[in-house]
Design a binder for these strands. Structure first.
Lengths: 335, 335
DNA sequence: CTGAAAGCGCTTACAG
DNA sequence: CTGAAAGCGCTTACAG
């Protein structure tokens, strides 16, 4: 039971002052080698660890990064978090996790708490509800308190903050062009997130690639039953030969509808989804997907925050970094 | 730009002492109503928030809980985390997340950091590697430093700590009995986690329900290709009519093999898997699963930790709580 | 009812 | 080379 020893106790045991002990442990050149050694020996004997709370108070920082995640069950965000954790670890920073559950109410509570100075900076993916209402006051509050904010993933909103995202538009532009090049005429799109920024960008990429907007064949709804009906229509009546899905829900629904309607993938219908690798690979058939490199996104978010904290960016100017997605072909796009 | 104001500054503006301000803000009866009101008014005008680092130093605590997660991509753990976050929130505690990636090395690093007093307590699901090596020194170190530990989910190990888990054995016992009651003779089991505690418990439940051990038909391997081969053998040669899968990997593999071998689920093969609701529902066909109530598990973990921290448990005696699983029938067990 | 003082555990400029 | 002092921002027992 080696309950934690303090500098003061160490000093007493060694018959030196607290300052001497502190300096010795920090390899200050002010301290004589002998003293330094004595101090270190006793410190390691007692397994001395400086109290991080005291150190942080002294240094006026927290050593901590707040991360706001809209939905942790979404494995994309889980992977982003793991990237953040890995990068923070390198800088001896701790990641405090907050889950907004796509609720603006919760997001506000979180930001309000954070203004008290619990963290040195915050990484946030704005909730769907917040995007719909376009109410960003709570984020501005953070900025007001001089707490740096990095917006990640859902960056398509007008906030004066550093951002790190993914080339959502280009990904679907490229995917659509891919089907075109393969000679497919009827290319459809399904979306349960057409109302939020990233959904809109993906749709925009699709439409831009089609050139002629009248070619667009879209099934969009946030309600599962409606979405299902619309996808079914697209597949069975409009006879689309390829379908791009902007999100997990629509991808899985498309797969489901094909299964129920006995439509063979990829023979009768090619499918591409914006879903995670670990799910894509295990579906039957496996589903071609757009890899967003979530871990890199998380790493970058922390890097950008630290650049900001360490003053490596000009204040008033904001960084915006885009990570390239990759289209990974699995069985569902086999020709 | 309302950069944070301190007690001292507030006191100066009001021409009173720091102690008076502090007491007023805490509704101390020592302070006169008038003073109290003046103080509060100015405080709210300046949006005063006590510096949490200073408060924590004073109170000798951190207000923080460390959570060690073996694998965040596993949506079970993601959901556990969300339960923990929700419960911590209620007590104004922050969740610091650490991801061990099933590595004992990383787990040791994390525990070592935590002994310095970054958190008031830790919630840990021990990594697979740690279980294999049965090396728990780093966890004992935490205990040595009087940092309470709650083991969650993977509790089948001899550690003197509070625990919260799931009735792994019973779940598979019940599932096996269920198939028995339906008149199924050949009930198989597939596992990629037969070497770790929870896997062993699930297998034990299965074997106990079979009574006659010679009836056991098992496909176990941590290597995907081997597991696939063995499952294929179970399905095509041993002709099992029902298969219990102890984990995501084996469940998805079984589904995959059935798909490739053109074996119909549920007509020719019933399937039950230990996988998450959000995946189970979307597979084709949807996969009957054992619901582990991860969010409740997370909530309970934090509750237990707080009981321990607040001295509501006798020291030296440990709490062990088991959450009941639920077998949820979807398409893959339709008779 | 108000305030001075001590202290939580550190770090660091300054004096000797 | 060592130590006393001030201070990070609070809280709280104690004195007046």
């Amino acid at each position: 039971m080696k309950s934690k020893i303090t500098l003061k106790e160490l000093a007493k045991l060694l018959n030196v002052s607290v300052s001497t002990v502190s300096k010795a442990l920090h390899d200050s050149p002010e301290i004589s080698p002998k003293t330094s050694e004595r101090v270190k020996e006793l410190a390691s004997l007692h397994n001395y660890r400086p109290n991080p709370v005291a150190v942080n108070l002294k240094k006026s920082k927290t050593g901590t990064i707040g991360v706001v995640i809209p939905n942790i069950s979404n494995s994309f965000f889980a992977r982003v978090l793991s990237g953040m954790e890995a990068e923070a670890q390198k800088h001896d920073q701790q990641i405090i996790t907050y889950i907004s559950n796509e609720s603006i109410e919760r997001e506000k509570q979180i930001c309000d708490m954070l203004t008290s100075g619990l963290v040195d900076g915050v990484l946030v993916a704005v909730s769907e509800e917040t995007q719909k209402k376009q109410d960003y006051d709570h984020l501005f509050a953070l900025l007001d308190y001089e707490i740096p904010v990095v917006i990640y993933d859902r960056i398509n909103l007008g906030l004066p903050a550093d951002k790190i995202g993914v080339d959502d538009e280009k990904s679907f532009y490229d995917a659509t062009k891919y089907f075109r090049a393969k000679g497919i005429e009827k290319i459809g799109l399904a979306s349960a997130i057409h109302h939020v920024g990233i959904g809109q960008l993906r749709i925009k990429g699709y439409e831009r690639a089609l050139q002629n907007e009248s070619l667009a064949l879209m099934a969009t709804s946030t309600k599962a039953t409606d979405l299902k009906r619309k996808i079914k229509e697209l597949i069975t009546q409009k006879k689309v030969e390829a379908l791009l899905c902007t999100d997990f829900e629509s991808a899985i629904m498309a797969n489901r509808v094909a299964y129920e309607e006995k439509i063979n993938i990829p023979e009768d219908l090619k499918l591409i989804g914006y879903i995670s690798k670990d799910i894509a690979e295990f579906l039957t058939p496996s589903l071609s997907y757009i890899e967003q490199h979530p871990k890199e996104l998380g790493i970058n978010a922390v890097e950008i925050l630290n650049n900001r904290l360490d003053g490596r960016y000009e204040s008033g100017k904001f960084e915006e970094k885009i990570i390239s997605t990759t289209l990974v072909h699995l069985e569902s796009t086999r020709f």
